[in-house]
Design a protein around this nucleic acid. Structure first.
Lengths: 179, 179
DNA sequence: TTGGCTGGCTAACGATGTTAGCTATAATGG
DNA sequence: CCATTATAGCTAACATCGTTAGCCAGCCAA
């Protein structure tokens, strides 16, 4: 219910860099996201990017911020419009769809430690709110988030044995947390 | 209950390389695991390693195999010796302890796609068996595994907000899946 | 006019995985 | 017992990566 936090403001050039990086990430995958590749797509040389982002990690943080905003919005919408008693399922469905439709960004945003110092304060909490709304309890919220993330990341990485019925797997997860 | 599958056999040198790589991984973290670092610790030059492992990924696969065997053994033991009705909790506790005591190996073994072609057949299924024993259903087993993995990886990556009571989070997860 | 800021550039560094090509030693077969 | 072949090391090098140093052109304010 809380309003989305203030997002970072960027110069035109910086915004363009982020947009181009995002397109490369979505279209060509995470291994294509190199400073030289981003620079080339803009029509500039790699070292020039460092006039706008101190490090590749900082550029990634901008992408992570974008990903968290989109994901948070999707999840807030999902729980707001969920049918009576079906909030957990709506949340999990929305989570799965949002993550698998931008797999590289999801991975970038969730693998490894969060660069919290490069993210707007409050963003993390805001994006996680839907889990609290749906469970009513911080411990249960974090457990449900862990389940959702585990399901998504294992699905993206094809860690389930080939031929697994992932629909049943997600359903079993939802059933465990349904009220 | 199934017996552990046959493991890979290696020459003395290959086994030594894996052992050294494992020590570096455990003691110095994943970013220290480079071909040159491993070679140096053995007293050899990096290109010589390629006489024993075709690629770094193949060496990592050997480490992943080791990790899956250790983890599988721990989980099998945990469900075998679990008190009546407490199998889910025993399994989750064992999973958490085994993963967090070798964080770099756990990450290596679970981040990104499995190099299935470099792993002994049956190992993956054997390591996952305890989840089926405890849930009685493949869908629920995969969901419980997803929860365990999500909890562990988010904990290792410090993705939970600082100050979180992870004990409560794990307990909430166990409660959702307890029979 | 001058001085500094902005944002490009080239050249280069060090690290990484990996390959090519050479060589010494060990094993094997006639 | 010698000849050959496989094993396992070596050096040199390559391409790619993030990143830094140092230079310079243009613009804007004092």
């Amino acid at each position: 219910m809380t309003a989305a936090p203030e997002l970072s403001t960027r110069s035109d050039r910086a915004a363009q860099i982020v947009a181009v990086a995002r397109r490369i990430l979505d279209d060509e995958g995470v291994e294509a996201l190199t400073m030289r590749r981003v620079a080339e797509a803009i029509g500039v040389r790699a070292p020039s990017l460092y006039k706008h982002f101190a490090t590749k990690r900082a550029l990634e943080a901008a992408l992570i911020e974008e990903g968290m905003v989109e994901m948070g919005q999707v999840l807030h919408d999902a729980v707001s419009s969920s049918p009576r008693g079906g909030a957990v399922r709506s949340l999990l469905e929305a989570y799965r769809r949002a993550a698998t439709s931008r797999p590289a960004l999801y991975r970038l945003a969730t693998a490894g430690p969060l660069p919290r110092e490069d993210l707007p304060p409050g963003l993390e909490a805001w994006a996680g709110e839907p889990f609290i709304r749906v469970t009513g309890d911080p411990g249960r919220a974090q457990a449900l988030f862990s389940l959702a993330h585990g399901l998504v990341i294992l699905e993206l990485d094809q860690r389930f044995p080939p031929g697994s019925d992932l629909g049943r797997t997600w359903e079993a997860g939802a059933a465990a947390f349904a009220t």
